[in-house]
């Protein structure tokens, strides 16, 4: 983990990166991390676009706004005056926009749709869909305003899961077998100029569990094999190790002092007359002690497992950032907390 840095002389880990691709196994919270990273990158007056490409409207839910159209919408204000915009990239719309831009063919759109050509190009033709999705993200990275400056300081992509990420991003080889010439081919080449370069970092979100960690390791290897720029690893939903090291060992071995526990519960005013206060005698102090001991043992077991997986992650030698487990789930205010944590750890 990068050390917390002073805001004035901040040296963030991904200086020069303008496209942050966020992937991760399903269920690890990559959409949450993408949203938090966008907020973190926008902190201090920057303008950031976060895009989703899988049509699930996950960003709208996280930012608590109506479903996103195929147009940039401002969804949040970051600390220090920054702005976060969001966009749900729809491959059909991207194709029609593309046809219009290059061939002035938008009028033909509905005819093409009727014939199944749009369906073909966006869902069935190999790689075309991915070229359209990544192409739109690339366009946002490159987009310049009238003043000649980039419209967005950074673009964050909530990308497909780790198992598909290398293939998704490596549009070059994906269309290579089919489109050997033509504009899709040139578009793929243009996308690779951004995605395969130092302008891009592909971050992987994981939990400290076996399968997500294994997929992260596989994902790093695949990205490296495809010569795609691997970014950091974000460890999401980390448990606080609440017990001391000595107590963890005791908890796992069942050696916790239950008498002291019962005594403390009374001292804290939780139990009175041998029963849990408010339970009308239905829950005895022994019930509470037993439950706390079991829960403590499971917690210690979990922390030990997380430690093993953390060691596995260290073997990947990637900058690693940690985000806590939120028992109440993620809402807009906790998103700002997560952004602050990423900011402090130097990810943005």
């Amino acid at each position: 983990m990068a050390a917390a840095k002073d805001d004035d002389v901040r040296d963030v880990d991904w200086d020069g990166v303008r496209l942050h691709v966020v992937s991760g196994k399903g269920g690890t919270g990559k959409t949450t991390v993408a949203a938090a990273l966008a907020l973190a990158l926008a902190t201090g007056g920057k303008k950031v676009l976060v895009v989703e490409v899988e049509g699930r409207q996950g960003l709208a839910q996280i930012f608590d706004v109506p479903p996103l159209p195929y147009a940039d919408r401002k969804v949040a204000v970051a600390p220090g005056g920054g702005e976060v915009y969001a966009l749900a990239i729809d491959p059909e719309e991207a194709l029609l926009e593309y046809l219009e831009m290059f061939y002035n063919l938008r009028v033909a759109g509905s005819a093409l749709r009727k014939m199944g050509a749009i369906d073909f190009a966006t869902t069935i033709a190999p790689g075309v869909r991915d070229v359209l999705l990544t192409g739109k993200a690339k366009e946002a990275v490159r987009r310049k305003g009238k003043d000649g400056k980039h419209v967005y300081d950074a673009v964050v992509m909530d990308a497909p899961p780790t198992g598909r990420i290398a293939r998704f991003l490596n549009v070059n080889s994906e269309v290579a077998g089919l489109a050997r010439t033509g504009p899709i081919r040139s578009q793929a080449d243009a996308v690779m100029e951004v995605i395969g370069s130092r302008l891009t970092a592909v971050h992987l979100v994981t939990l400290l569990e076996e399968m997500p960690v294994q997929e992260t390791a596989d994902g790093v290897a695949e990205l490296q094999a495809a010569k795609l720029p691997v970014g950091g690893v974000v460890v999401n939903q980390m448990r606080r190790p609440l017990l001391s090291a000595a107590d963890q060992t005791k908890a796992r071995k069942g050696h916790l002092d239950t008498e002291a526990l019962a005594h403390d519960l009374a001292a804290a005013g939780l139990v009175k007359g041998g029963a849990l206060v408010g339970s009308h005698g239905a829950v005895t102090v022994d019930d509470v002690v037993r439950a706390l001991v079991v829960e403590g043992a499971e917690h210690a077991e979990r922390v030990a497992l997380e430690q093993r997986e953390r060691d596995n992650l260290e073997g990947l030698h990637r900058p690693t950032y940690e985000l806590p487990f939120l028992p109440d789930g993620v809402d807009l205010s906790s998103l700002y907390e997560l952004a602050e944590l990423l900011h402090r750890q130097g990810m943005a």
Binding site: R239, R240, L242, L243, S244, D247, L256, D257, A260, L261, D264, L265, A267, A268, L270, A291, L292, V293, E295, G296, H299, F325, P327, D328, G329
Partner: peptide, 21 residues
Amino acid sequence: GHSTTAALLRIHADRAATLDR
């Protein structure tokens, strides 16, 4: 010196909050 009990109660508090959600 009630730190062990406090920690166990925090573990339960997190768990109960998750369960509620």
